[in-house]
């Protein structure tokens, strides 16, 4: 399963990666995208919205279910990737690069260090599966 070594992870299968300064890209993992199956609808937040670590920042829906997507870190939404909701298949092929969903200006960048790193997430996936 594809995992980005530069990103850090939540148990609910979201990732965050430091872009520049205090700005972090956030998305869902390739594992999450595969588990969801065909993604048919997504809702992303408005630019400027403040989210807290662990708070839902958007919705991803498959044919069978709707799931919240949780913010790995607290911050303000500075950018959203509108391409993905229009073409969610991107998540199947490139969940970590073209598949980023929002960019957050971190309120407390130290939260990033508390997330699972690549190795921990890989172990988590192995034990969960």
């Amino acid at each position: 399963m594809m995992i980005d070594a530069n990103a850090r992870y939540l148990k609910s299968h979201e990732w965050a990666r430091k872009e520049n300064g205090n700005v972090f890209a956030v998305g869902i993992t390739a594992y999450a995208a595969e588990q969801l199956g065909d993604i048919v609808y997504m809702e992303l937040p408005q630019i400027g919205r403040e989210v807290k670590e662990g708070e839902a920042f958007g919705i991803v829906e498959s044919v069978k279910s709707a799931s919240d997507m949780y913010a790995p870190i607290s911050g303000t939404v500075t950018e959203i990737n509108k391409t993905v909701p229009d073409n969610p298949d991107i998540l199947k092929t490139d969940a970590y690069q073209k598949g980023w969903l929002i960019k957050l200006e971190a309120a407390n960048p130290a939260e990033f260090d508390g997330l699972m790193d690549e190795k921990a997430y890989r172990t988590y996936l192995e034990t969960e599966a």
Binding site: G37, D38, V40, S62, V63, K64
Partner: peptide, 10 residues
Amino acid sequence: PIQYTGGIVA
């Protein structure tokens, strides 16, 4: 089987 490899939409 809930779905095969092609997925529900296909």
